[in-house]
Design a binder for these strands. Structure first.
Lengths: 212, 212
DNA sequence: GTCTATATCCAGATAGAC
DNA sequence: GTCTATCTGGATATAGAC
C-alpha cells in the first residue's frame, strides 16, 4: 500500500495537496514526510506544491496546521453536542475517539501533536502556529463547558484538562495499539467534570480563580 | 550554539553516544536527528556509532528509549517520594516539572513522546520499545498509588491518568512556551486522586474494576 | 498553471587505513 | 577499536519547457 491519503476528486489541487500533507504529518510527522510523497498522495505534480506554496514545506505545514486544527475542533465539538448530558457526552466523546483511532489502525489521532512536539524547539513559525491552534481549542472547549458551569475559570480549566488528557491518551493508545488509555481518559474527564459541575469547591477551581 | 548535548568526560563512548542521541530525540525528534549531529554532540567519531550500534540509527534509538525511559520514571518517582502527603506530592511533582521545563527553555520534556508519536505507524520495533516503556511506567506509577489506595485497579487508573495528563501537558506547555498547562494538569491530578483516595466510589473506579 | 528534469545538499550506511 | 573518506539515495528547492 503506497498511498496513505487518497486524492479526492472534485476538490482543487491546492486543497488536495494540503489534505495529503495533513494526513502524512499526522501519521508520520513533519521531518519524516517528504514533499515527493505529498505530491504522489495528492495526485498533484511536484511543481504544483511550490506553485501554491512558494514558501515550500514550512508554508505548506503552517497552512495544514491552521486549517486542520480548527477543523478537528469543530469535529470534536460536534461529537460533544450530540449528547445532551455533559457527563455522558464526555464519556461518549472519548469512546468515539477510541473507536475512530482503532478503526484507522492507530494512525489518525491528533492532526498536529506530532508536528507540534517536533518543531517546538526548532522552528519558531511552526511552533507559533501550533500554539495558536491549541489556544483556540482551549477557548472553544471552554465555551462548551461554560454552558454547564457558570465559572469561566473552571470552564477554562476543564477545557485545558480535556485537551491535555486527550493528547496524552493519544500518545499511549498509539504507542501501545490499545484503545483502553482513551477509555480511561474518558473516565478521568467524567470525574473531573462531575466534581466541578456539581459546584463542589475544589482546590482546582479555587486555584484557577486565583490565577487572574 | 552548536552543541545541545554536552559530552560528559569520564563516561565511555557508548554511553556518551546514547546520551547525545537521547537529548536530540527528545528535543527535535527521531527523523530530524542526524547521526552526524549525534557524533558531534557526543564527541565521538562518526564510525564509533556503527561500532557500538551495528544496527544503525534504529538500534541506537531503541537503546536510547529503553535506557532513558526507566531512568526518567525513576526520577519522577523520586520526586513523588520526596513529599509524604500524596496530594501535596502530586501537586509538587507537576510544579517541579513546570519549573524544569521552563528552565530548559521548553526543550526537555518527555524523553520518548516525540519519537513515540513519530514511529507509531512506521517503525514497529521502535513502536514496541516505546509501548513497553509506557506499560512499565503505568505499573511503576500504580505501585506508588497502591501505597495510598488498596484497590489495585484504582491505582492503575490513577497512574495511567497521571502519565497521560503529564504527556498532554508537555505538548501544550512546549507548544505555547507556558508552564501553566503543567500547573493546571497538577490540579487535575490532585482532584482525581482526592476523589479516589478518600474511597469515594466513582464511576471510574467502578468501570476499571469491571475491566477484569 | 502544469509538469519534468535537475541542481544542490545531506542523510544513513560502509570500507578500509591505522 | 578509532577514525576518515566515500558510496548511494532521497531530501528540498529551482529552472524552464509546454
Amino acid at each position: 500500500m503506497k498511498q496513505t491519503g487518497a486524492a479526492v476528486a472534485g476538490t482543487d489541487t491546492r486543497t488536495r495537496i494540503r489534505e495529503a500533507a495533513t494526513a502524512l504529518f499526522r501519521r508520520e510527522g513533519y521531518a519524516a514526510t517528504g514533499l515527493k510523497r505529498i505530491a504522489a498522495d495528492s495526485g498533484a505534480p511536484f511543481g504544483s506544491i511550490y506553485h501554491f506554496f512558494p514558501g515550500g514545506k514550512q508554508q505548506l505545514a503552517e497552512d495544514a496546521v491552521r486549517t486542520s486544527g480548527p477543523e478537528y475542533m469543530r469535529l470534536v465539538i460536534g461529537v460533544l453536542e450530540s449528547v445532551p448530558d455533559p457527563l455522558e457526552s464526555l464519556e461518549n466523546a472519548f469512546e468515539v475517539a477510541a473507536r475512530d483511532l482503532e478503526a484507522s489502525g492507530y494512525a489518525d489521532a491528533c492532526p498536529i501533536a506530532t508536528l507540534a512536539l517536533e518543531v517546538a524547539s526548532s522552528n519558531e513559525a511552526l511552533r507559533l502556529a501550533t500554539a495558536e491552534v491549541f489556544d483556540q481549542w482551549v477557548e472553544t472547549g471552554a465555551d462548551w463547558f461554560a454552558g454547564w458551569t457558570g465559572d469561566r475559570d473552571v470552564a477554562l480549566w476543564l477545557s485545558r484538562s480535556m485537551i491535555m488528557i486527550l493528547e496524552g491518551a493519544f500518545v499511549l493508545s498509539r504507542a501501545t495499539r490499545d484503545p483502553e488509555p482513551l477509555r480511561a481518559a474518558g473516565r478521568s474527564m467524567v470525574e473531573l467534570a462531575r466534581g466541578a459541575l456539581v459546584g463542589r469547591s475544589t482546590s482546582a477551581s479555587r486555584s484557577s480563580r486565583e490565577e487572574h
